[in-house]
């Protein structure tokens, strides 16, 4: 398949995703995920307040925004890891309200985490196998009789090894996941997510803490997902990466969707600049400040 793909410098962008103006909450030609009036408050503070958003199918959508914009919270709400105060949201036409996280995952919506969750004291191969869906040996009573699940286990193992080879982790398959580097864990987490053949992959900051040497291969893997027909939604701070691979960008600030559009036009949107600068003015945390200023610089650099 694509294990030997050379780094793609100019990925093919998918266009014509939306209907009408590219404005916050605009309708999509073929949405896979629709959220309506989703709000979540923490101690009086509205962390997420999304009126309407649609995620286009078969494309790579980036969710960006300054720190504290509610991106990760929104991710958690969509995937059942947190419960919103109000709102409804659906995935492929099926409501996700009050659906627990594991059922969301079974429906084909698989996520990764900002802080990688490699299962440290399991081998890399076991991490992968855990990702497979519908394993009969995961039932306690059937687990006792290996002949029931052995054949399926072999198929799963073959698939896992194939994926590991694609992600260049096959040499590590018997090692504990805890022994992998940060970037390798990100790769493992992504590979593990693919074990279940998801339709929508949600990546929370896939590039955070990844050694630059691995960045390009991670990017290629994400582009690969699209070429295999999966939809990708990811949160990212790195604007270069967003511009490089995203087909569509959704901008959040202070819990709201403030802008939407293709990566080139959205960055000219005054609301986006405002969101970053506004957050810059309001915040008093040094770390965030520099990060936001950096982001703005990147935005401006990119546009020139």
């Amino acid at each position: 398949m694509s294990s030997d793909v050379t780094p793609t410098s100019k990925p093919v962008k998918t266009t014509g995703l939306h209907i009408g103006e590219a404005e916050p909450g605009c309708r999509k030609v073929d949405p896979i995920l629709i959220a309506d009036g989703v709000t979540r408050t923490f101690g009086g503070l509205k962390a997420v307040d999304v009126d309407h958003v649609e995620i286009p199918r078969g494309a790579i959508t980036a969710l960006i925004g300054p720190n504290g914009a509610g991106k990760t919270t929104f991710f958690n709400l969509l995937t059942g890891f947190d419960k919103p105060d109000t709102g409804k949201w659906e995935f492929e036409g099926r409501s996700l309200a009050h659906v627990p996280a594991y059922r969301v995952a079974r429906m084909g919506l698989i996520r990764t985490f900002q802080l990688t969750k490699a299962l440290g004291l399991l081998s890399v191969l076991d991490n992968m196998k855990l990702g497979a869906k519908g394993q009969s040996g995961e039932n306690l009573f059937r687990a006792v009789f290996p002949f029931i699940w052995r054949k399926q286990e072999e198929e799963i193992e073959a698939k896992a090894v194939e994926l590991l080879t694609r992600f260049k982790l096959d040499a590590k398959q018997t090692d504990y996941a805890a022994s992998l580097s940060g970037g390798q864990r990100k790769l493992l987490e992504m590979a593990r997510a693919l074990m279940s053949d998801p339709t929508l992959v949600m990546l929370d900051e896939p590039m955070a803490g990844v050694n630059p040497a691995l960045t390009q291969s991670l990017l290629d893997h994400i582009l690969d997902l699209k070429s295999q027909g999966m939809t990708v939604l990811f949160v990212e701070h790195d604007m270069h990466m967003v511009r490089h691979i995203a087909d569509w960008v959704v901008v959040m600030a202070e819990g709201r969707i403030v802008a939407e559009g293709d990566p080139h036009t959205v960055m000219e949107n005054p609301a986006v600049i405002d969101a970053y600068l506004g957050a810059h003015h309001d915040t008093d945390l040094g770390a965030t400040e520099t990060e936001n200023v950096e982001a703005i610089k990147e935005l401006i650099d990119d546009e020139q």
Partner: peptide, 18 residues
Amino acid sequence: RVIKGIREDEDAVRALGK
């Protein structure tokens, strides 16, 4: 395997549909 995965990080296992 699922059980040991839960010991390591139950959110990760949940995100895998268990």
